[in-house]
């Protein structure tokens, strides 16, 4: 019930926002929708399944470039481009997911880190398709004829509708057997496998779905900016997504929403101090959060309200005070 109320409030706020805030803020909130979708993908993969990806910017790049190349080079409409972006990114995700099965724990982090750093150089190399350094510019999204909204408002509603659908679909997917299998593989892979959970299919599918979401996010990033270039999808983007997931909280989907708002607006504020300030704030917060609030803003708030509302004593040994930290264990090879 409480959840229905929270979801209802979120939907209403998102629906009336364009009517009450200036148009440049509406613009920011389209980015929030895109980031929320991408971070949701990261939460499913890393938070729920324990696979570390530092390279989700690469999937966003693929999604963004699929839409951009189809629109710019072939003149295809966006409503064809976005589903194809999701498909392409998902297929790439399945491939990376299959490779990731062989790379436990920190090795996966290392490989995806390298993927993220190498992404812009791929984009620069295949100039004839991607436009190289200069990137590709796109037509601004227009509202369908007959609607009283501006193109920007139209894109805002479409982006949030897709985000809503992504959250709903993900919630349905992780609710039942699939979600249980993912969490079991994260918390105790050996026990899960003994109980007949097939690690190969579930982990690969988690990677694939996560990539689908990131691909869609990349597509919306491209359409909102009406421009893609190798500089859009640097390593900094991948790391920003991870920061959003950690700050928001990896254990619930609400973390994606909160994380997306933080990574969109925090740099805008911090930049006014100094160009380097956003990174400094991000880095220091990341470390402090891992030390003191490993379950993120949402997780921390939940614990706080639980404590205030129910007046229960602080968690005992049966309920570890930071459940997130304990369950974030990733299968790691031990030395002989």
């Amino acid at each position: 019930m409480a959840r229905a109320i929270r979801v209802g409030i979120a939907v209403v706020v998102i629906a009336i926002l364009p009517a009450i805030v200036p148009s440049f803020v509406v613009f920011d909130f389209i980015y929030v929708a895109a980031y929320a979708i991408a971070i949701l993908g990261l939460i499913i993969l890393t938070g729920m399944n324990g696979q570390i990806s530092l390279g989700h910017g690469a999937f966003m790049a693929l999604g963004g470039y699929v839409v951009a190349v189809l629109a710019h080079n072939l003149g295809w409409p966006y409503w064809v481009g976005v589903p194809l972006a999701a498909l392409a990114s998902g297929a790439f995700g399945l491939v990376i997911g299959a490779i990731a099965l062989r790379l436990a724990g920190v090795y996966l982090a290392l490989a995806t880190f390298s993927l993220a750093v190498a992404t812009p150089s791929f984009l620069k190399h295949y100039k004839s398709i991607t436009g190289g350094f200069g990137g590709l510019s796109l037509d601004a999204v227009k509202a369908p004829a007959g609607l009283p909204t501006s193109g920007q408002q139209w894109l805002y509603y479409v982006a949030w509708a897709i985000a809503g659908a992504a959250f709903l679909a993900s919630a349905l997917i992780v609710r039942g057997k699939f979600g249980r299998a993912l969490r079991a593989l994260r918390d105790n892979p050996i026990a899960a496998i003994s109980f007949g959970v097939n690690p190969y299919s579930y982990k690969t599918l988690a990677f694939g779905w996560s990539a689908v979401l990131s691909g869609i996010a990349g597509a919306f990033l491209a359409m909102t900016t009406a421009y893609v270039s190798p500089d859009t999808f640097t390593f900094a983007l991948s790391i920003t997504l991870l920061i959003g997931a950690v700050l928001g909280g990896m254990m619930t989907f609400w973390g994606a929403l909160v994380g997306a708002i933080v990574i969109e607006f925090l740099p805008l504020v911090a930049q006014q101090v100094n160009a380097g300030a956003p990174s400094v704030v991000y880095g220091v917060t990341l470390i402090l959060m891992m030390l003191f609030v490993p379950d993120g803003i949402v997780g921390g708030l939940q614990r706080l309200t639980r404590r205030l509302v129910r007046r229960v004593p602080s968690p005992t040994a049966f309920e570890p005070s930071v459940p997130a930290a304990a369950s974030m264990a990733v299968d790691q090879p031990t030395r002989e």
């Binding site: 991870l242 300030a277 880095g283 470390i287 930290a325």
Partner: peptide, 28 residues
């Protein structure tokens, strides 16, 4: 403080260092 923490925590903490040091150099 995180020496004995799970792998994911350590990865994120060193990435936090990465980001903070990169930003500090840009700042200075």
């Amino acid at each position: 403080p995180v020496e004995r923490a799970p792998q994911l925590t350590l990865v994120i903490v060193t990435l936090g260092l990465f980001t903070a040091i990169n930003g500090l150099a840009g700042w200075f």
